[in-house]
Amino acid sequence: MLFRYGQLILLSLMFLSLLGCSRTPSDDPRLLMSLEQTPNAMGIQTIVLVINDGSTPLDNAKVQIEATMTHAGMPSQIVQMQALGAGKYQASIDFSMLGEWVLIVNVTEANGAVMQRTLPAFNIQ
């Protein structure tokens, strides 16, 4: 009986150890990113993303943006952003459904460094 309880405790500990794990890398804090204007209406909208490395605008980077909803079941849109200069990048996204959206930004700097950042979620109403 003691052996059975031991097995149960061992299994529980194995499960609990999963709770503390994470396989996803945390966001790189080095680059600062913000949207000039947070999208809030349905339909195709042009978004402008401002990226700074410290106080310096980040130019000459390849920036890809993925727009998706916070719930499962809606296909993502992945778009290459167009550089405008002064650390600004632009893309058009079709916000095709009401609800909570997130933008995931993938940046490849000129020196080859790669980073990913998930911007705070926002509502399309």
């Binding site: 396989r23 916070t70 995931i104």
Partner: peptide, 8 residues
């Protein structure tokens, strides 16, 4: 428990 915490 351990993967990306974004539903999609």
């Amino acid at each position: 428990l351990t993967g990306a915490q974004l539903a999609p």
